[in-house]
Design a protein around this nucleic acid. Structure first.
Lengths: 215, 215
DNA sequence: AAAAACTAAACAAACGTTTGATTTTTTCTT
DNA sequence: AAGAAAAAATCAAACGTTTGTTTAGTTTTT
């Protein structure tokens, strides 16, 4: 067991640095995390950051690129599949909630990065990825509308609602705890809450999107 | 005309500093805005910040307190009023969208502050205010449910959706532009988009909340 | 013996803040 | 109303830290 710890911690300090950096950046923001702070937390020498990543900026970019999720393939497959439109949306909801809940530290970083827009390369990278995914989801909604399964809602803002609800739940941790009247902790991201969250999202978007049979 | 400029800029440098600080903090985040940067942008001497506000921290706190919105009174009045529950929710939506759109720079700061949770006093201040408001809105939803006007939806997460949609639209500026396929600018916060946003929110929450007559 | 990994110490630059002097405004006395 | 005294506002320069990064040397691995 001790050997394993030494193994995983010493074999790849680079990876270890990335992991600690992800946590710290998510917790405190890019500017607030100093190299010294990061090095101490990761228990490596200060110079190792420059040694492995050249600069703090490039460490950040490496982190971003290494974790940039490849969701598009799944979404495209979903769009092309031969199931009712609502089932597609339901699966989109499941996937996004799972993805965001599991990688919440990373998504917090992404959101802050998009909000500040200080590093144009990152903004471009994230934005492009996001734009493509959103286009597919809009495709699903419009397909449902054309097939007479969905109401003619504002597709773009419907996506904003789906994405916004999940984003805020992840990003604004404290708010989520307060809303669900849970003592402040990461418990709101547990399995129980995640299922509750999925139920709510599906219930709301179903009511919003689906044409009632008796309409 | 020149006299007026001199008048407004010189009469209260303190206020001017606060206004520039609000813009810069919203744009770049607390840590990224240096005193020198702020002083230069506001065209005052570096020492004036400490002279008026003691420290950067207290400047930030002053900004927060001076802009902390007093929404509760309006909400409480709304809850007590004798109109259908949906009309109450509709007014809540209008008020929140207007409030957030107009003071979006301030709300971006608040959201970042809540996400990072680095200054406990600020978090407490914002959280308390928020908690009270959310309790009232939950009251409106539960009242509608008891009166048989609303479905028994997950009230807490419904609020999360309302708040989350608006928050993300304000906070994630770029995302909003991309979703609405608008060239990047503050145009998505113009009157036209604001009305569209209100229509969407009401449409979605109405479908979600309202019991269909023929159910 | 060569290469890679690692380290302590030092670097200039930028940070928030303070100092001490100077200018401007206000207040009070004549 | 005029001018001296007091107060407030403003400034350039410097304070001690901390920042990200580099250096030059040591240890470890290949």
């Amino acid at each position: 067991m001790q050997e394993q710890v030494i193994h995983t911690e010493k074999q790849d300090k680079r990876q270890h640095l990335l992991e600690v950096a992800e946590r710290l950046f998510a917790e405190q923001g890019y500017e607030a995390v100093s190299i010294r702070h990061l090095a101490k937390e990761a228990d490596v020498n200060i110079a190792m950051v420059s040694y492995y990543f050249e600069s703090k900026e490039k460490l950040f970019r490496t982190l971003l690129e290494s974790k940039m999720p490849k969701t598009r393939a799944i979404l495209e497959e979903l769009l092309a599949s031969d199931i009712p439109s609502w089932e597609k949306m339901s699966k989109v909801i499941d996937m996004y909630i799972d993805k965001f809940f599991v990688n919440r530290a990373f998504h917090r970083i992404i959101m802050r990065e998009m909000s500040l827009q200080q590093r144009p390369e990152h903004v471009q990278l994230i934005a492009d990825n996001f734009a493509r995914n959103m286009k597919i989801i809009r495709g699903i909604i419009e397909e449902g509308q054309e097939k007479g399964q969905f109401r003619y809602v504002d597709a773009e803002l419907t996506i904003a609602s789906m994405f916004g609800t999940i984003s805020t739940a992840i990003y604004n941790h404290k708010l989520m705890c307060m809303l669900t009247q849970q003592p402040d902790s990461e418990l709101v991201y547990g399995d129980e809450y995640r299922e509750r969250f999925k139920r709510h999202m599906k219930s709301m978007l179903q009511a919003h999107l689906l044409l009632k049979a008796g309409g």
